[in-house]
């Protein structure tokens, strides 16, 4: 079976590392990007199966990235799971309206990531 790929987008190196480790345990091959612009550039080269996406980042934030991604050819394919400190219900609704498939509120643990990826049909 083909190994699924996940792009971890977060401006915190520590969060990227922790998330990547959890995703590797879930048998994903991971790549990292530290803002939305870098993420969109990576997606244009190789569209991943899943994207774990922070909201507040410099250069291009998560919401703008998601809107750009969905306009790209094959940009509707990746399952996007927001992973952010934003907990406001209006913000969550905004993310879902923009095309997010699931939503993780920080702080998170491996159980939550696994559960959300399961909900999103990734595992």
């Amino acid at each position: 079976m083909r190994t699924k790929t996940c792009l971890v987008v977060d401006d915190s190196k520590m969060i990227r590392r922790v998330a990547s480790r959890i995703l590797k345990d879930l048998k994903f091959a991971t790549k990292e990007a530290e803002n939305g612009q870098e993420a969109i550039d990576r997606c244009r080269v190789n569209m991943p199966d899943a994207i774990l996406l922070d909201w507040n980042m410099p250069v291009m934030d998560g919401l703008d990235f998601l809107k750009e991604l969905r306009k790209e050819p094959s940009g509707d394919k990746p399952v996007v799971v927001f992973c952010t400190a934003e907990r406001d219900v209006l913000k969550i609704s905004q993310a879902l309206d923009a095309g997010a498939d699931e939503y993780v509120m920080k702080p998170f643990d491996s159980d939550i990531i696994e559960s959300k990826f399961y909900q999103a049909g990734l595992i």
Partner: peptide
């Protein structure tokens, strides 16, 4: 709340 519960 996040274990198993879909965000919607």
């Amino acid at each position: 709340a996040q274990r198993g519960l879909p965000i919607r």
